[in-house]
Nucleic acid binder design. Structure first.
Lengths: 189, 189
DNA sequence: TCCGAATCTTGATCTAGATCAAGTGTTTTT
DNA sequence: AAAAACACTTGATCTAGATCAAGATTCGGA
Protein backbone atom coordinates (compact mmCIF):
# COMPACT_ATOMS: atom_id res chain seq x y z
CA UNK A 1 0.00 0.00 0.00
CA UNK A 2 2.61 2.51 1.13
CA UNK A 3 5.71 0.86 -0.32
CA UNK A 4 5.69 3.10 -3.36
CA UNK A 5 5.53 6.19 -1.16
CA UNK A 6 8.36 4.89 0.98
CA UNK A 7 10.52 4.26 -2.06
CA UNK A 8 9.74 7.77 -3.28
CA UNK A 9 10.82 9.28 0.06
CA UNK A 10 13.95 7.17 0.14
CA UNK A 11 15.01 8.44 -3.24
CA UNK A 12 15.59 11.73 -1.44
CA UNK A 13 16.13 11.06 2.26
CA UNK A 14 16.89 8.28 4.73
CA UNK A 15 13.94 7.52 6.97
CA UNK A 16 13.47 5.05 9.83
CA UNK A 17 10.47 2.70 10.17
CA UNK A 18 9.33 4.77 13.10
CA UNK A 19 9.51 8.02 11.19
CA UNK A 20 7.78 6.54 8.18
CA UNK A 21 5.00 5.28 10.42
CA UNK A 22 4.43 8.85 11.59
CA UNK A 23 4.18 9.95 7.98
CA UNK A 24 1.69 7.21 7.18
CA UNK A 25 -0.41 8.13 10.20
CA UNK A 26 -0.78 11.57 8.73
CA UNK A 27 -1.84 10.40 5.30
CA UNK A 28 -5.27 9.86 3.86
CA UNK A 29 -5.90 7.56 0.92
CA UNK A 30 -8.50 8.55 -1.68
CA UNK A 31 -9.69 7.39 -5.05
CA UNK A 32 -10.88 9.78 -7.70
CA UNK A 33 -12.96 8.84 -10.73
CA UNK A 34 -12.09 10.15 -14.18
CA UNK A 35 -13.04 13.82 -14.67
CA UNK A 36 -13.37 14.42 -10.93
CA UNK A 37 -11.53 17.38 -9.42
CA UNK A 38 -9.07 16.98 -6.58
CA UNK A 39 -8.76 20.76 -6.30
CA UNK A 40 -10.78 23.62 -7.72
CA UNK A 41 -9.49 27.07 -8.61
CA UNK A 42 -10.38 29.48 -5.82
CA UNK A 43 -10.19 26.94 -3.00
CA UNK A 44 -7.13 26.90 -0.81
CA UNK A 45 -4.79 24.07 -1.64
CA UNK A 46 -3.96 22.70 1.81
CA UNK A 47 -2.43 19.44 0.69
CA UNK A 48 0.07 17.72 -1.54
CA UNK A 49 -0.90 14.43 -3.12
CA UNK A 50 1.18 11.42 -4.09
CA UNK A 51 -0.11 9.43 -7.06
CA UNK A 52 -0.22 5.71 -6.27
CA UNK A 53 -2.01 4.69 -9.44
CA UNK A 54 -3.56 6.65 -12.27
CA UNK A 55 -3.07 10.07 -13.76
CA UNK A 56 -3.93 13.69 -12.99
CA UNK A 57 -3.41 17.05 -14.63
CA UNK A 58 -3.31 20.52 -13.11
CA UNK A 59 -4.33 23.50 -15.18
CA UNK A 60 -4.89 27.22 -14.90
CA UNK A 61 -7.75 29.05 -16.55
CA UNK A 62 -7.17 32.52 -17.98
CA UNK A 63 -9.48 35.52 -18.57
CA UNK A 64 -10.74 34.00 -21.81
CA UNK A 65 -11.56 30.70 -20.11
CA UNK A 66 -8.73 28.99 -21.91
CA UNK A 67 -7.20 26.14 -19.96
CA UNK A 68 -3.44 25.81 -19.69
CA UNK A 69 -2.04 22.50 -18.48
CA UNK A 70 0.66 23.15 -15.89
CA UNK A 71 1.50 19.63 -14.75
CA UNK A 72 0.82 16.07 -15.76
CA UNK A 73 1.31 13.59 -12.89
CA UNK A 74 1.46 9.86 -13.43
CA UNK A 75 2.02 7.38 -10.59
CA UNK A 76 4.96 7.94 -8.24
CA UNK A 77 4.73 11.72 -8.66
CA UNK A 78 3.57 14.48 -6.34
CA UNK A 79 0.96 16.99 -7.41
CA UNK A 80 -0.43 20.09 -5.75
CA UNK A 81 -0.91 23.79 -6.33
CA UNK A 82 2.42 24.31 -4.60
CA UNK A 83 2.03 28.07 -4.80
CA UNK A 84 -1.20 27.98 -2.86
CA UNK A 85 0.21 25.33 -0.55
CA UNK A 86 3.27 27.44 0.21
CA UNK A 87 1.74 30.91 0.40
CA UNK A 88 -1.75 30.05 1.63
CA UNK A 89 -3.26 32.06 -1.23
CA UNK A 90 -6.28 30.78 -3.09
CA UNK A 91 -5.49 28.15 -5.70
CA UNK A 92 -5.09 29.31 -9.28
CA UNK A 93 -5.02 25.75 -10.46
CA UNK A 94 -7.61 23.05 -10.86
CA UNK A 95 -6.43 19.46 -10.46
CA UNK A 96 -8.43 16.85 -12.29
CA UNK A 97 -8.15 13.06 -12.60
CA UNK A 98 -7.68 11.89 -16.18
CA UNK A 99 -8.28 8.26 -15.20
CA UNK A 100 -9.54 6.52 -12.08
CA UNK A 101 -6.75 7.50 -9.75
CA UNK A 102 -5.61 6.45 -6.29
CA UNK A 103 -3.75 9.10 -4.31
CA UNK A 104 -2.24 9.58 -0.88
CA UNK A 105 -3.07 13.00 0.50
CA UNK A 106 -0.83 14.83 2.95
CA UNK A 107 -2.64 17.74 4.58
CA UNK A 108 -0.72 20.98 5.22
CA UNK A 109 -1.69 20.98 8.90
CA UNK A 110 -0.24 17.48 9.15
CA UNK A 111 2.90 18.60 7.36
CA UNK A 112 3.49 21.31 9.94
CA UNK A 113 3.16 18.78 12.77
CA UNK A 114 5.22 16.21 10.92
CA UNK A 115 8.07 18.61 10.26
CA UNK A 116 8.49 19.00 14.02
CA UNK A 117 8.24 15.26 14.70
CA UNK A 118 10.32 14.15 11.74
CA UNK A 119 12.82 16.94 11.02
CA UNK A 120 14.40 15.00 8.16
CA UNK A 121 11.27 15.87 6.20
CA UNK A 122 12.53 19.47 6.04
CA UNK A 123 15.17 18.06 3.75
CA UNK A 124 12.56 16.11 1.81
CA UNK A 125 10.49 19.22 1.22
CA UNK A 126 13.54 21.26 0.35
CA UNK A 127 14.38 18.68 -2.32
CA UNK A 128 10.75 18.42 -3.47
CA UNK A 129 10.58 22.19 -3.93
CA UNK A 130 13.98 22.17 -5.54
CA UNK A 131 12.87 19.58 -8.07
CA UNK A 132 9.61 21.42 -8.74
CA UNK A 133 11.67 24.52 -9.33
CA UNK A 134 14.10 22.82 -11.69
CA UNK A 135 11.25 21.29 -13.71
CA UNK A 136 9.56 24.67 -14.00
CA UNK A 137 12.71 26.54 -14.99
CA UNK A 138 13.25 23.88 -17.63
CA UNK A 139 9.82 24.64 -19.00
CA UNK A 140 10.41 28.40 -19.05
CA UNK A 141 13.69 27.88 -20.89
CA UNK A 142 12.18 25.48 -23.39
CA UNK A 143 9.20 27.66 -24.09
CA UNK A 144 11.44 30.66 -24.58
CA UNK A 145 14.13 29.01 -26.64
CA UNK A 146 12.54 26.44 -28.89
CA UNK A 147 9.92 26.09 -31.60
CA UNK A 148 6.70 24.13 -31.18
CA UNK A 149 8.18 21.18 -33.10
CA UNK A 150 11.33 21.16 -31.00
CA UNK A 151 9.32 21.27 -27.78
CA UNK A 152 7.27 18.33 -29.00
CA UNK A 153 10.35 16.27 -29.83
CA UNK A 154 11.85 17.03 -26.44
CA UNK A 155 8.73 15.93 -24.55
CA UNK A 156 8.37 12.82 -26.68
CA UNK A 157 11.93 11.88 -25.82
CA UNK A 158 11.73 12.66 -22.12
CA UNK A 159 8.17 11.58 -21.39
CA UNK A 160 7.08 9.05 -24.00
CA UNK A 161 4.72 7.62 -21.36
CA UNK A 162 2.56 10.74 -21.58
CA UNK A 163 1.73 9.91 -25.19
CA UNK A 164 0.45 6.47 -24.15
CA UNK A 165 -1.84 7.76 -21.47
CA UNK A 166 -2.78 11.40 -21.88
CA UNK A 167 -5.09 12.84 -24.59
CA UNK A 168 -3.12 14.89 -27.10
CA UNK A 169 -5.35 17.86 -26.42
CA UNK A 170 -3.83 18.11 -22.91
CA UNK A 171 -0.32 17.46 -24.13
CA UNK A 172 -0.71 20.25 -26.67
CA UNK A 173 -1.78 22.59 -23.90
CA UNK A 174 1.14 21.47 -21.73
CA UNK A 175 3.45 22.23 -24.65
CA UNK A 176 1.90 25.66 -25.11
CA UNK A 177 0.36 25.11 -28.52
CA UNK A 178 -3.04 24.33 -30.06
CA UNK A 179 -4.14 20.73 -30.67
CA UNK A 180 -4.31 21.53 -34.38
CA UNK A 181 -0.68 22.57 -34.41
CA UNK A 182 0.43 19.47 -32.46
CA UNK A 183 -1.51 17.31 -34.88
CA UNK A 184 0.27 18.88 -37.85
CA UNK A 185 3.68 18.57 -36.20
CA UNK A 186 3.10 14.86 -35.52
CA UNK A 187 2.00 14.34 -39.11
CA UNK A 188 5.05 15.98 -40.63
CA UNK A 189 8.19 15.94 -38.33
CA UNK B 1 27.66 45.22 6.33
CA UNK B 2 25.57 42.14 7.07
CA UNK B 3 22.44 43.83 8.45
CA UNK B 4 20.66 43.56 5.12
CA UNK B 5 21.39 39.85 4.93
CA UNK B 6 20.18 39.35 8.49
CA UNK B 7 16.94 41.17 7.74
CA UNK B 8 16.50 39.02 4.66
CA UNK B 9 16.95 35.82 6.68
CA UNK B 10 14.61 37.06 9.39
CA UNK B 11 11.87 37.64 6.85
CA UNK B 12 11.75 33.85 6.62
CA UNK B 13 13.18 32.36 9.83
CA UNK B 14 14.13 33.25 13.40
CA UNK B 15 17.86 33.13 13.92
CA UNK B 16 20.04 33.74 17.00
CA UNK B 17 23.15 35.96 17.05
CA UNK B 18 25.23 32.86 17.43
CA UNK B 19 23.65 31.14 14.45
CA UNK B 20 23.91 34.26 12.33
CA UNK B 21 27.59 34.53 13.20
CA UNK B 22 28.09 31.02 11.84
CA UNK B 23 26.41 32.06 8.63
CA UNK B 24 28.59 35.16 8.33
CA UNK B 25 31.73 33.09 8.92
CA UNK B 26 30.80 31.06 5.87
CA UNK B 27 30.24 34.04 3.61
CA UNK B 28 32.59 35.76 1.23
CA UNK B 29 32.04 39.35 0.13
CA UNK B 30 32.90 40.30 -3.45
CA UNK B 31 32.47 43.25 -5.74
CA UNK B 32 31.86 42.85 -9.44
CA UNK B 33 32.33 45.57 -12.05
CA UNK B 34 29.69 46.18 -14.71
CA UNK B 35 29.75 43.53 -17.49
CA UNK B 36 31.75 41.09 -15.37
CA UNK B 37 30.43 37.55 -15.00
CA UNK B 38 29.73 35.97 -11.63
CA UNK B 39 29.04 32.64 -13.31
CA UNK B 40 29.68 31.32 -16.80
CA UNK B 41 27.62 28.73 -18.61
CA UNK B 42 29.35 25.36 -18.38
CA UNK B 43 30.94 25.96 -14.98
CA UNK B 44 29.37 24.36 -11.97
CA UNK B 45 27.36 26.80 -9.90
CA UNK B 46 28.53 25.99 -6.40
CA UNK B 47 27.13 29.06 -4.68
CA UNK B 48 24.18 31.28 -4.11
CA UNK B 49 24.74 35.02 -3.93
CA UNK B 50 22.93 37.71 -1.99
CA UNK B 51 22.93 41.16 -3.62
CA UNK B 52 23.96 43.85 -1.14
CA UNK B 53 24.14 46.67 -3.64
CA UNK B 54 23.78 46.77 -7.41
CA UNK B 55 22.15 44.64 -10.03
CA UNK B 56 22.72 41.35 -11.85
CA UNK B 57 20.97 39.34 -14.52
CA UNK B 58 21.08 35.65 -15.26
CA UNK B 59 20.51 34.43 -18.78
CA UNK B 60 20.57 31.26 -20.85
CA UNK B 61 21.98 31.04 -24.35
CA UNK B 62 20.28 28.83 -26.92
CA UNK B 63 21.53 27.01 -30.03
CA UNK B 64 21.28 30.18 -32.10
CA UNK B 65 23.30 32.13 -29.53
CA UNK B 66 20.24 34.10 -28.52
CA UNK B 67 20.28 35.21 -24.90
CA UNK B 68 17.21 34.76 -22.72
CA UNK B 69 17.10 36.66 -19.45
CA UNK B 70 15.91 34.33 -16.68
CA UNK B 71 16.27 36.52 -13.62
CA UNK B 72 16.93 40.13 -12.74
CA UNK B 73 18.25 40.58 -9.20
CA UNK B 74 18.45 43.96 -7.51
CA UNK B 75 19.70 44.42 -3.92
CA UNK B 76 18.20 42.24 -1.19
CA UNK B 77 17.64 39.37 -3.61
CA UNK B 78 19.33 36.02 -4.03
CA UNK B 79 20.69 34.88 -7.36
CA UNK B 80 22.21 31.63 -8.53
CA UNK B 81 21.79 28.95 -11.14
CA UNK B 82 19.67 27.05 -8.62
CA UNK B 83 19.36 24.09 -10.94
CA UNK B 84 23.10 23.63 -11.12
CA UNK B 85 23.38 24.41 -7.41
CA UNK B 86 20.78 21.77 -6.53
CA UNK B 87 21.68 19.03 -8.98
CA UNK B 88 25.41 19.60 -9.35
CA UNK B 89 25.04 19.69 -13.13
CA UNK B 90 26.94 22.21 -15.22
CA UNK B 91 25.39 25.66 -15.23
CA UNK B 92 23.15 26.54 -18.15
CA UNK B 93 23.05 30.14 -17.04
CA UNK B 94 25.49 32.98 -17.13
CA UNK B 95 25.22 35.57 -14.37
CA UNK B 96 26.46 39.05 -15.23
CA UNK B 97 26.63 42.30 -13.29
CA UNK B 98 24.67 45.13 -14.91
CA UNK B 99 26.22 47.72 -12.59
CA UNK B 100 29.06 47.70 -10.09
CA UNK B 101 27.64 45.21 -7.65
CA UNK B 102 28.47 44.07 -4.13
CA UNK B 103 27.44 40.54 -3.28
CA UNK B 104 27.72 38.07 -0.43
CA UNK B 105 28.59 34.62 -1.68
CA UNK B 106 27.57 31.44 0.12
CA UNK B 107 29.47 28.42 -1.17
CA UNK B 108 27.64 25.10 -1.53
CA UNK B 109 30.26 23.29 0.54
CA UNK B 110 29.65 25.84 3.30
CA UNK B 111 25.91 25.40 2.97
CA UNK B 112 26.24 21.67 3.60
CA UNK B 113 28.28 22.32 6.76
CA UNK B 114 25.98 25.14 7.82
CA UNK B 115 22.85 23.04 7.46
CA UNK B 116 24.26 20.67 10.06
CA UNK B 117 25.37 23.44 12.43
CA UNK B 118 22.29 25.62 11.96
CA UNK B 119 19.37 23.29 11.16
CA UNK B 120 16.92 26.18 10.98
CA UNK B 121 18.54 26.98 7.65
CA UNK B 122 16.84 23.89 6.23
CA UNK B 123 13.65 25.89 6.65
CA UNK B 124 15.26 28.94 5.09
CA UNK B 125 16.30 26.99 2.02
CA UNK B 126 12.94 25.29 1.79
CA UNK B 127 11.31 28.72 1.71
CA UNK B 128 13.92 30.11 -0.69
CA UNK B 129 13.29 27.24 -3.09
CA UNK B 130 9.56 27.62 -2.57
CA UNK B 131 9.71 31.28 -3.49
CA UNK B 132 11.91 30.60 -6.50
CA UNK B 133 9.38 28.01 -7.57
CA UNK B 134 6.40 30.33 -7.14
CA UNK B 135 8.12 33.10 -9.09
CA UNK B 136 8.92 30.71 -11.91
CA UNK B 137 5.43 29.19 -12.07
CA UNK B 138 4.10 32.73 -12.23
CA UNK B 139 6.28 33.34 -15.24
CA UNK B 140 5.16 30.16 -16.99
CA UNK B 141 1.54 31.08 -16.42
CA UNK B 142 1.99 34.65 -17.60
CA UNK B 143 3.92 33.66 -20.68
CA UNK B 144 1.29 31.08 -21.56
CA UNK B 145 -1.77 33.16 -20.81
CA UNK B 146 -1.09 36.74 -21.77
CA UNK B 147 -0.07 38.86 -24.74
CA UNK B 148 3.20 40.75 -24.93
CA UNK B 149 1.44 44.00 -23.98
CA UNK B 150 -0.26 42.42 -20.97
CA UNK B 151 3.00 40.91 -19.78
CA UNK B 152 4.63 44.32 -20.04
CA UNK B 153 1.87 46.03 -18.03
CA UNK B 154 2.10 43.35 -15.37
CA UNK B 155 5.86 43.72 -14.96
CA UNK B 156 5.62 47.51 -14.95
CA UNK B 157 3.10 47.31 -12.13
CA UNK B 158 4.94 44.69 -10.08
CA UNK B 159 8.54 45.73 -10.70
CA UNK B 160 8.60 49.40 -11.71
CA UNK B 161 12.12 49.56 -10.25
CA UNK B 162 13.42 47.40 -13.10
CA UNK B 163 12.52 50.13 -15.56
CA UNK B 164 14.64 52.65 -13.62
CA UNK B 165 17.72 50.48 -13.55
CA UNK B 166 17.76 47.83 -16.23
CA UNK B 167 18.24 48.40 -19.99
CA UNK B 168 15.02 47.73 -21.89
CA UNK B 169 16.84 45.25 -24.06
CA UNK B 170 17.17 42.95 -21.04
CA UNK B 171 13.65 43.60 -19.83
CA UNK B 172 12.34 42.69 -23.30
CA UNK B 173 14.25 39.44 -23.13
CA UNK B 174 12.95 38.75 -19.62
CA UNK B 175 9.42 39.34 -20.92
CA UNK B 176 10.03 36.98 -23.84
CA UNK B 177 9.82 39.50 -26.66
CA UNK B 178 12.11 41.48 -28.94
CA UNK B 179 13.32 44.97 -27.96
CA UNK B 180 11.55 46.31 -31.06
CA UNK B 181 8.24 44.91 -29.88
CA UNK B 182 8.70 46.28 -26.36
CA UNK B 183 9.53 49.67 -27.80
CA UNK B 184 6.33 49.69 -29.84
CA UNK B 185 4.23 48.53 -26.88
CA UNK B 186 5.62 51.33 -24.73
CA UNK B 187 4.93 53.87 -27.47
CA UNK B 188 1.30 52.84 -27.93
CA UNK B 189 -0.28 51.14 -24.83
C1' DT C 1 35.73 65.52 -22.31
C1' DC C 2 35.62 62.93 -26.10
C1' DC C 3 35.03 58.54 -28.80
C1' DG C 4 33.13 54.19 -29.47
C1' DA C 5 29.91 51.12 -27.98
C1' DA C 6 25.54 50.19 -26.41
C1' DT C 7 20.71 51.34 -26.47
C1' DC C 8 16.44 52.81 -28.33
C1' DT C 9 13.21 53.84 -32.01
C1' DT C 10 10.68 53.51 -36.35
C1' DG C 11 9.48 51.49 -40.77
C1' DA C 12 8.85 47.53 -44.04
C1' DT C 13 8.25 42.85 -44.55
C1' DC C 14 7.72 38.00 -43.26
C1' DT C 15 6.18 33.78 -40.78
C1' DA C 16 5.01 30.46 -37.07
C1' DG C 17 1.34 29.36 -35.13
C1' DA C 18 -3.56 30.76 -33.97
C1' DT C 19 -8.23 30.73 -35.22
C1' DC C 20 -12.28 29.23 -37.61
C1' DA C 21 -14.75 25.54 -39.72
C1' DA C 22 -16.06 21.04 -40.74
C1' DG C 23 -15.77 16.12 -40.92
C1' DT C 24 -14.23 11.50 -39.07
C1' DG C 25 -13.21 8.36 -35.57
C1' DT C 26 -13.36 6.80 -30.83
C1' DT C 27 -14.64 6.39 -26.02
C1' DT C 28 -18.19 6.74 -22.28
C1' DT C 29 -22.44 6.71 -20.51
C1' DT C 30 -27.07 5.17 -20.33
C1' DA D 1 -26.55 -1.08 -28.53
C1' DA D 2 -27.41 3.61 -29.37
C1' DA D 3 -26.62 8.32 -28.30
C1' DA D 4 -23.76 11.66 -26.79
C1' DA D 5 -19.62 13.51 -25.64
C1' DC D 6 -14.96 13.65 -26.61
C1' DA D 7 -10.70 13.39 -29.47
C1' DC D 8 -8.25 13.91 -33.62
C1' DT D 9 -7.33 15.58 -38.32
C1' DT D 10 -7.22 18.59 -42.34
C1' DG D 11 -7.93 22.82 -44.90
C1' DA D 12 -8.36 27.96 -45.37
C1' DT D 13 -7.38 32.20 -43.50
C1' DC D 14 -5.57 35.60 -40.23
C1' DT D 15 -2.44 38.00 -37.00
C1' DA D 16 0.88 38.91 -33.19
C1' DG D 17 5.14 39.34 -33.05
C1' DA D 18 9.73 38.31 -35.35
C1' DT D 19 13.19 39.75 -38.45
C1' DC D 20 15.78 42.93 -41.19
C1' DA D 21 17.49 47.53 -41.82
C1' DA D 22 18.91 52.01 -40.63
C1' DG D 23 19.12 56.17 -38.07
C1' DA D 24 19.12 58.82 -33.57
C1' DT D 25 20.43 59.03 -28.90
C1' DT D 26 22.68 58.00 -24.71
C1' DC D 27 26.18 56.10 -21.88
C1' DG D 28 30.55 54.90 -19.89
C1' DG D 29 35.36 54.15 -20.06
C1' DA D 30 40.09 56.10 -21.22
Amino acid sequence: MYEQLRRNLEEKITITDDEFLKVVQNIRKTTLKRKKDLLRKGDQCDFIAFVNEGCLRSYSTDDRDTEHVIQIALENNWISDLRSFITGDKAELTIEALETTEILVLQKSCVDTLLKEVPVLEKFFRILYGNAYVATVDRVQWNISYSAAERYEHLLKNHPEYFQRVPLIHIASYLGMTPENLSRIRKNG
